[in-house]
């Protein structure tokens, strides 16, 4: 089979398997969203010496379902003077971009399912990480249009802040990956994980790159301490101030889905993906390993949220531009020298 130019896959499954695996991955990972939501509230409660939700279901386990149910039974409305269609489209854009990035996350290498050779990932394009960056770029429109179209000062300022923040940290994030690509020599996430299986988890040789990517990942997902776009002390709710009901739920779910996806990216790029060191693990356990590592990072996200206060906006911008950007560039340069010298 001749490999297409910009989707060097070489082999792809029959169409029904492609659809089935995409559905399966989406369902499994999307179900992590209410779980992350619940974990967020429960753990924040524990960090603050209280119980968190306990009433809905056993131990409050159905709290996230109750939240979504409540939101869906609210009155539908669009603020006066808002740009109606953009207002409706904005949460959908956020949702799409968060879901689409999931497609490139590898959960395992190719395995046999009912005799069909199947890669346990959505797609493995040769552009790999750039696919994630591309959809990260579009995610910006969701926030921007949402805040701009609601015609409220709080939303407007929130979306402006979100825009400036996202684009500032996108540069640092892009540069921090360069070192990884130099070492592996490929953009494909499957190749990156395979390289880590054969050599060493990349967060050890690429420690600086990993730190920059971690901080930029926090900023890109609007999680505390970088949630300036929401900043409820100043801007009520930021870009989704005017949203309520299901549309607000869509923004909210997209935010948590982004957190899940970024945790998966941390796992895949820097922490060996499905690899367990010093153990030749069987195939079936690999997706579980990926999800377990992902939960460690989600816990870390929540831990940071409970620990660090929010930054001031000028601190946020100067941190991104004056510290992370030069640091990531120097990391790329040093890695280039080392890779060429050691090769």
């Amino acid at each position: 089979m001749s490999a297409p130019l910009y989707a060097e896959i070489g082999y792809f499954e029959p169409w029904w398997m492609q659809i089935a695996k995409a559905l399966a991955i989406f369902l499994v990972v999307f179900n992590m969203v209410p779980m992350a939501l619940l974990a967020d509230r429960k753990l924040l409660g524990r960090f603050q010496h209280r119980y968190g939700p306990t009433r809905v279901g056993p131990f409050g386990l159905l709290q996230a379902v109750a939240d979504i149910g409540k939101l869906l039974f609210k009155q539908q409305f669009v603020p006066r003077d808002s740009r109606k269609w953009l207002f409706i489209a904005a949460p959908i854009i956020s949702m799409v971009t968060a879901a689409a990035t999931l497609a490139i996350i590898p959960f395992s290498d190719t395995v046999d399912i009912f005799g069909v050779k199947t890669g346990l990932y959505g797609v493995d394009p040769s552009i790999g990480i750039l696919f994630a960056f591309a959809f990260g770029g579009i995610a910006f429109y969701g926030l921007m249009l949402g805040g701009w179209s609601s015609n409220s000062k709080y939303s407007f300022l929130g979306s402006m802040r979100a825009a400036a923040q996202l684009i500032s940290y996108e540069i640092a994030q892009g540069l921090s990956i360069i070192g990884v690509i130099m070492m592996v020599g490929s953009l494909s996430l499957v190749d990156i994980v395979t390289w880590q299986e054969q050599n060493v988890w990349l967060f050890i040789p690429q420690f600086v790159g990993w730190l920059v990517f971690l901080v930029a990942g926090f900023a890109e997902t609007n999680r505390p301490p970088f949630d300036l776009a929401e900043g409820e002390a100043e801007l009520v709710g930021g870009y989704f101030t005017e949203y309520s009901g299901g549309r607000f739920a869509a923004f909210f779910a997209a935010e948590y889905l982004n957190m899940v996806v970024v945790s998966l990216l941390f796992t895949t790029i820097f922490f060996g993906g499905w690899d367990v060191p010093f153990w030749d693990q069987p195939n079936w356990i690999e997706p579980i390993v990926v999800l377990a590592k992902m939960w460690v990072f989600i816990f870390f996200f929540i831990w940071v949220r409970a620990t660090l206060p929010r930054l001031r906006y000028d601190q946020l911008m100067s941190f991104g531009w004056k510290i992370l950007l030069p640091l990531a560039t120097l990391n790329a340069l040093v890695t280039a020298v080392l890779v060429v010298v050691l090769d």
């Binding site: 995409a22 799409v96 879901a99 999931l102 869509a250």
Partner: peptide
């Protein structure tokens, strides 16, 4: 080659539209 990615996008649109 990109069919699974298209499925993800369609699922995202569908879910967003439902919400």
């Amino acid at each position: 080659a990109y069919l699974p990615a298209i499925v993800f996008v369609v699922l995202g649109i569908g879910l967003g539209a439902v919400f």
